[in-house]
Amino acid sequence: MDTFSVLISLFLGIGLAASAGFRVFLPLLALSIAGYYEYIPLTENWEWIGSLTAIITLAAATFLEIFGYYIPWFDNLLDTIALPLATVAGTIVIVATVADMDPVVTWALAIIAGGGTASAIKGNAAALRVGSTATTGGIANPLVTTVETGTATIMSVASIFIPIVAFIVVLLLFYGIFRFYKKLRKKPSPRP
């Protein structure tokens, strides 16, 4: 595999990992469908993710996850268990798509780039939901859920069909997160 192909597969994986930060199972379902139709080559040990059984299982999990986020008290609980799951899903999507590399390098990239991207996005999305719950009493949470699901869908599709653009969007997301926290740190604390 040439360097360009490795970069494209890495961009694909990072885009799907970011998507996993918004919805854990949706990017796995997208990867499964793309693998089933042989649009994306899956690494040898991960070909099972492109099976019909995996598609059906991931479709059910995706539906339940999306529906669960619309239940007012359950959405915050779901965020608690989704953070470690998103990290695992982010790692999996890179391991499943990056081929012809030393396994040590692949797993290191998967854990750092995939798991790190997914957990950073999920952590910030969970903080947004907590803020929404605190400021609106949970009334705005369905809107937050819809935006997160839409973003996960767009990121998953973009990652599969135009991975370079998906990677650029991930960079922009991280830049936005960086700017937000930088702005928070500059705010003067209220004086008594």
Rank of each mutant, 00 (worst) to 15 (best):
L52G: 11
A120Y: 00
L42I: 06
I112Q: 13
G68H: 00
S5D: 14
V147A: 12
G138C: 07
I66N: 06
N141W: 12
L83S: 03
V157F: 05
S132M: 11
A86C: 14
A127P: 00
A86L: 12
T62Y: 00
L77Y: 15
V95C: 12
A96M: 11
A152V: 01
F67D: 04
F22E: 10
A18E: 01
T3H: 05
Y69F: 05
A134R: 10
R179T: 07
T62K: 02
L85R: 06
A99F: 02
V95D: 09
I49A: 06
P84H: 08
D100M: 08
T91P: 05
D100V: 00
E38F: 07
S5T: 15
I111T: 04
M101Y: 09
A108R: 00
L78W: 09
W46Q: 09
A125V: 13
T43W: 05
V144T: 14
Y181A: 05
Y69M: 00
P84K: 07
M155E: 03
T53F: 13
T146C: 07
Y175E: 08
K187A: 15
E47V: 06
V98S: 02
T149F: 14
A113P: 05
N45F: 15
F63G: 03
L83E: 06
W107V: 10
Y70S: 04
G50C: 03
L172C: 11
L109W: 13
L52C: 01
L109Y: 14
I168T: 10
P72K: 09
T87I: 04
I94M: 06
T133P: 00
Y36Q: 11
A61F: 05
S119F: 06
Y70D: 11
I162P: 03
P27F: 01
S132P: 04
G21K: 03
G114F: 03
G68A: 04
G13C: 04
L42M: 03
G21C: 05
V6M: 08
S32M: 03
V157K: 04
E148I: 01
I66T: 09
T62P: 09
S19Q: 10
Y36F: 15
F180K: 06
G138Q: 15
D2A: 13
P142G: 06
F178K: 08
A118V: 07
L64E: 09
V104K: 03
L7W: 15
M101C: 08
F167V: 05
K187S: 12
S9K: 10
F180T: 07
Y175P: 00
F180H: 13
L143K: 07
I112H: 11
I139A: 14
F74L: 15
W73N: 14
